[in-house]
Design a protein around this nucleic acid. Structure first.
Length: 930
DNA sequence: ACTCTGCAAAGAGGA
């Protein structure tokens, strides 16, 4: 038996042949193995595996397990045998629950990801019952668990107008079934349990979280009823997926259990059929192979960027709950659909908009999947070097706190992308092959502290990629275009110009530009844009705008990309004497002094729902705007900060909740972070090598109308043309300010920088329109700081702007000579009396920032990107590069605008003069600074 | 070649 892996170079037709076993289907695929001979080899797919050929395309990766190797006329050939398994695109990690819904109906699966599952009672109740189940497995007491878990979803229940007592009664029926079944197990001599196990399979390309594993066999809880003797098919499919995941660990279970908790609550007199809640069934090879083939089909279509029609499965549309939605969406988007279409299609320009962004979002999802694959394609050391993991941790303790586990470990060099509050994979050595659990980072100090549902020997932490960004962008695109207001769409699609009313009132006395901005926002019938360069009082203007809107009786949604910006805006609002707002967000996302305004989900349903419904200002990140809770709401105006850092679909998450919107940002500072930037933004013209399987297929299959057959074997692997895919790195703010400059107001008065410091930025980025707010601000100097004696500084540092070339050499992304020079400069300022907290150090690379940070305790040292939005009296910038500026980090000159505009009184640029001179923009900067 | 903030995920229903 052999194992074979590589990209497919040719897919043959499926045909039928007669064999000694009767008529059998077969299909031949040709692939180029990764190892061994370089020549392509033929793999014959027999029987059911031949179906694979129907949806598999050239360029896709195939993994053939347990295939037979034979020599035929001097040529080596492979063929599937009795226990062979074929995996298509094994590096594409598919969710177990997605396989479940795919098996029900591929079209339903598509609709779920497109529109998201809205807030509804069965789902909330299901979640509660699952949590109670989990509590009971951990030894909790039934009544306490029910009370606690029902209270936890108070907000959801309130929004659904449900009464807590009735829900408790409802849940306790289910809980009794679980409890009864569990005690049965105990009577039989005790079970070995593992609850909520996170499982990832690199071999089958699957991931999921099993409700429970009992004696090595998967147990899945369902809160629906099932009075048939057999479990529901899609439920078995889900359990079979968990079995595949366990199988990879070398312990294939032979039975699975489905626990239908509603059965126990049914009236035995009225219901007929099998009312026992627990149904065991055997996990035979046939089922596992079937599940894998469905997973393959899903992965192949996802990688090819194809949209399911429903014909891929034999589901019956008549019985489907989603039939109406399915027909409406198919009709509106003019998509082929098994259920058929009703209604009229949205106009062509809207469909184009939808399709362009759909593809861009899916490309972004693809980039997330590439990150998943790195969990096993990179070695521990490679991941640590790429800052994606902390390895070789030394576990120092674990204890149970409030039903969760607190895990501690020591780390000799805690430099990585992982930060406090992040969701990570905690493992005992390997995130996939070892024992791993999802965990939340609590602190990254002397000791690393994380919390998880299950205790894990904490030896390694890995960045855990999340598709939530792509998910939220997609539902926002759906909401804005398919459920959105026609009037708003006219402006978004650019069918008409935005309309403004004149507003006479004065809102801000001493700053005409800010006042104009508020009047523009208040008088906007559709949208307004506030362009705020560094230090121009954006946050103040936002707060004043929100107040002005509230005074007019409007309900306002206040949003931004980051939690920090949302909280800053609320802080400013509070400073202006207004605090009738509600903050929606996770506990760890919201700043400490804003926690008191945070909407708790726990509590009395009516009270919680009223808090949200009655607030005239609700504040949340755009990601939260796409949450189930927020999507229930509606607003008159959305005011969105950091809009130039948001992708267009991310902006839509907030925009779609309101009639009008105000975007605040600065497109001359950093654009949105897009992982798939190369694929979605600039069109690549470079030749692709053997590793271009993903790019080739996604790129080529751009047509979604059925005509999109992959152009196999094209010279460079992609047939994408410019403009075909929407650019996620261009914000809605930037697009609108270019098409509708009349909607924008530039805040031209800055309160931050000395004239000398602001000059370069003003000329390079703002047509020289930026001006200091007062002579004092223009003339400020480091000697103005209390305790500072200017004479104590070296001559050079007495200048407001200076340039230092320490003549160093870059080593990777660090420059040791610059580390030393920066430390000396900072110490010189400190020695002259500048408080350490008034000094900031900025570097382009995380590695350099970390190296400087080690030398300079109590000084803020960070990357440019993370410094955006804040300022210091004194700023030292380390450019790192020597030789040339070839790293992509130097490409976007807007990053320099951010770095140079953080300083109030003194700015020191540290870099290699010659390297910087290789780019004319950087050369101008050096000339200005010297 | 780089930068990196959001987010747990799975959770239901019926002929």
């Amino acid at each position: 038996m052999a194992e074979l892996r590589g990209p497919i170079v040719d897919v043959g037709e499926t045909r039928s042949v007669s064999t000694q076993y009767g008529e059998r289907d077969l299909a031949e695929v040709t692939l180029r193995p990764e190892r061994g001979q370089a020549e392509p080899v033929t793999l014959t797919l027999w029987g059911k595996w031949s179906e694979t050929a129907e949806y598999t395309q050239t360029g896709m990766e195939v993994l053939a397990l347990g295939v037979e190797r034979e020599e035929f006329r001097g040529e080596i050939q492979y063929a599937t045998a009795g226990d062979s398994r074929i995996v298509i695109e094994p590096d594409y990690l598919v969710n177990v629950t997605d396989v479940r819904s795919w098996v029900q109906c591929p079209r339903m699966h598509y609709l779920n990801t497109l529109s998201g599952v809205p807030l509804n009672y069965p789902v909330v109740k299901g979640t509660v019952v699952h949590e109670v189940f989990s509590d009971l497995l951990r030894g909790g007491e039934v009544e306490a668990a029910i009370d606690d878990r029902v209270a936890e979803v108070g907000l959801d229940l309130g929004l659904l107008d449900r009464d807590a007592d009735e829900v408790r009664k409802d849940v306790s029926d289910h809980a009794r079934a679980i409890d009864g079944w569990l005690s049965q197990g105990t009577l039989e001599g005790g079970d070995e349990w593992r609850s909520e196990q996170t499982l990832i399979s690199e071999r089958y390309g699957l991931k999921g979280r099993a409700d429970a594993v009992r004696r090595g066999a998967p147990v899945e809880l369902k809160t629906g009823k099932n009075t048939n003797s057999e479990p529901r098919f899609q439920d078995k499919v889900q359990v079979a997926c968990y079995a595949l995941l366990l199988d990879e660990r070398g312990e294939p279970p032979d039975t699975g259990t489905l626990l239908y908790t509603k059965n126990a609550a049914l009236d035995r007199n009225e219901e007929s059929g099998d009312l026992s809640p627990a149904k065991d069934f055997s996990l035979n090879e046939g089922l596992l192979d079937y599940v894998l083939r469905e997973r393959n089909h899903l992965a192949a279509m996802a990688v090819a960027g194809e949209i399911p029609t429903g014909y891929e499965a034999n589901a019956t549309c008549n019985y489907c709950f989603e039939q109406d939605t399915c027909m409406v969406v198919s009709g509106r988007l003019d998509q082929e659909s098994k259920a058929g279409r009703i209604g009229e299609a949205i106009p062509e320009e809207e469909r184009n908009y939808f399709e362009r962004f759909y593809r861009a979002i899916e490309a972004e999802r693809g980039a997330v999947h590439d990150e998943y694959a790195k969990l096993w394609t990179q070695t521990a050391t490679e991941r640590a070097d790429a800052d994606r993991a902390l390895i070789d941790l030394e576990p120092v303790g674990k204890k149970e706190v409030d039903g969760r586990w607190e895990l501690r470990a020591r780390c000799s060099d805690p430099v990585s992308k992982i930060r406090e509050g992040d969701v990570v994979l905690a493992s005992d050595g390997h995130p996939v092959r070892g024992n791993a659990e999802m965990a939340r980072v609590v602190s990254m100090g002397e000791e690393i502290v994380v919390t998880a549902d299950e205790p894990v020997e904490l030896r390694r932490l890995d960045v855990y990629p999340s598709e939530i960004g792509a998910d939220r962008m997609l539902t926002a695109l759906h909401d804005a275009l398919l459920a959105g207001d026609e009037d708003q769409k006219d402006v978004l699609i650019d069918r008409r110009d935005p309309v403004f009313r004149d507003v006479e009132e004065t809102f801000i006395d001493n700053n005409p530009a800010q006042d104009r901005a508020v009047r523009r926002a208040v008088g906007a019938d559709d949208c307004a844009l506030i362009h705020g360069p560094p230090g121009t009082g954006k946050t103040y203007t936002i707060a004043r705008t929100v107040r002005a809107l509230v005074e007019r009786g409007e309900r306002v949604l206040l949003s931004a990309f980051t939690n920090r910006a949302v909280d800053n805006a609320l802080d400013a609002l509070r400073d202006q004497g207004y605090d009738e707002f509600v903050r929606v967000g996770t506990e760890h996302g919201v700043r400490e002094d804003i926690q008191e305004y945070r909407l708790e989900s726990r509590g009395d349903p009516d009270e919680r729902a009223a808090e949200l419904r009655e607030a005239s200002v609700v504040a949340a990140t755009t990601a939260s705007c796409g949450s189930r809770i927020m999507r229930e709401g509606s607003f008159d105006v959305a005011v969105i900060d950091e809009a130039s850092q948001l992708t267009e679909p991310a902006t839509l998450a907030a925009v779609a909740l309101a009639d009008r919107f105000v975007l605040v940002g600065d497109h001359q500072q950093l654009p949105p972070v897009v992982q798939s930037a190369d694929a979605a933004g600039t069109v690549e013209t470079t030749e692709h090598g053997d590793d271009s399987a993903d790019d080739g297929t996604t790129g080529a299959t751009t047509a979604t109308d059925g005509s999109g057959v992959v152009a196999s074997g094209t010279a460079n692997g992609t047939s994408r043309t410019a403009g075909d895919v929407a650019d996620l790195s261009r914000s809605l703010f930037e697009r609108l300010i270019e098409t509708h400059p009349e909607a924008a107001v530039l805040l031209d008065t800055q309160y931050r920088m000395a004239q000398r410091i602001q000059a370069f930025s003003s000329n390079e980025f703002y047509d020289g329109r930026l001006r200091p707010a007062s002579p004092d601000i223009a003339a400020q100097h480091v000697a103005d700081l209390p305790e500072v004696t200017s004479d104590a500084l070296p001559d050079r540092l007495q200048e407001r702007v200076s340039f230092v070339d320490p003549d160093g050499t870059a080593r990777g992304n660090t420059n040791p000579a610059e580390v030393t020079a920066v430390a000396e400069i900072v110490e010189a300022y400190a020695a002259a009396g500048v408080a350490r907290e008034d000094i900031g150090v900025i570097a382009p690379f995380r590695a350099q920032a970390a190296a400087i940070r080690r030398e300079l305790p109590a000084v803020t040292v960070d990357t440019v990107d993370r410094f955006q939005g804040s300022a210091k009296e004194v700023i030292v910038v380390s450019f790192v590069a020597t030789g040339d500026l070839d790293s992509p980090i130097f490409e976007d000159f807007r990053r320099v605008n951010v770095a140079l505009t953080r300083a109030k009184k003194a700015l020191v640029l540290v870099g290699d003069r010659d390297a910087l001179a290789t780019d004319e923009r950087y050369a101008r900067m050096v000339e200005w600074a010297e």
